[in-house]
């Protein structure tokens, strides 16, 4: 099996424009349009969060689909499982809204759909080739790659910086 892709975050590139959250809401709406989304009930929720860190840091956060996903093991109703692509999925039919997953997620990226009393999170946009948030990001702060590809680029960048420093 080829290595699955993941959503990586480059915090130094995020401008806090919230394009990702809007794209996420639209993708998870029934109409799949912005105007449709804002008039739907319940209002579709973004599964990506852009947090502000003083003085001027912006950090997009989204479910990491952890290898040892604490939410999956903590779930008391068997609603959270991992699919064949490595994506951790919450089955809304099985979810009883006990919020145990919220209590154990160290990233704080599981949301509560209060109208339906269900937990929700990033599903990596199963209907899309590239997740909506990544497609929408104008600065490349969100990237969708395999671990090998992403870490390879990080290494390359670091090597370049090292060489530049050595050469003065």
């Amino acid at each position: 099996m080829s290595q699955p892709k993941e959503i990586f975050i480059k915090t130094d590139r995020c401008l806090g424009c919230l394009s990702c959250t809007i794209a996420c809401v639209v993708e998870h709406s029934k109409s799949k349009t912005l105007f449709g989304a804002i008039s739907e009930t319940p209002v579709p929720k973004s599964r990506v969060y852009v947090q502000w860190v003083e003085p001027d840091g912006k950090v997009p956060l989204v479910c990491r689909h952890c290898e040892e996903a604490p939410c999956m093991y903590a779930c008391i109703s068997g609603a959270i499982s991992r699919d064949e692509n490595g994506v951790v999925i919450t089955d809304t039919d099985k979810c009883i809204g006990c919020w145990t997953c919220v209590m154990v997620c160290p990233y704080g990226v599981i949301g509560r759909q209060l109208e339906e009393h269900k937990a929700y999170r990033c599903d990596r946009c199963p209907d899309r080739e590239i997740p909506a948030c990544v497609s929408a990001c104008p600065t490349g702060a969100l990237v969708y790659e395999t671990v090998d590809s992403f870490s390879g680029k990080v290494r390359k960048h670091a090597s370049r910086e090292l060489l530049r420093a050595e050469r003065g």
Partner: peptide, 10 residues
């Protein structure tokens, strides 16, 4: 508190 505080070295 949010995870961004951890990611930005707070």
């Amino acid at each position: 508190l949010h995870y961004g505080h951890f990611m930005t070295g707070k």
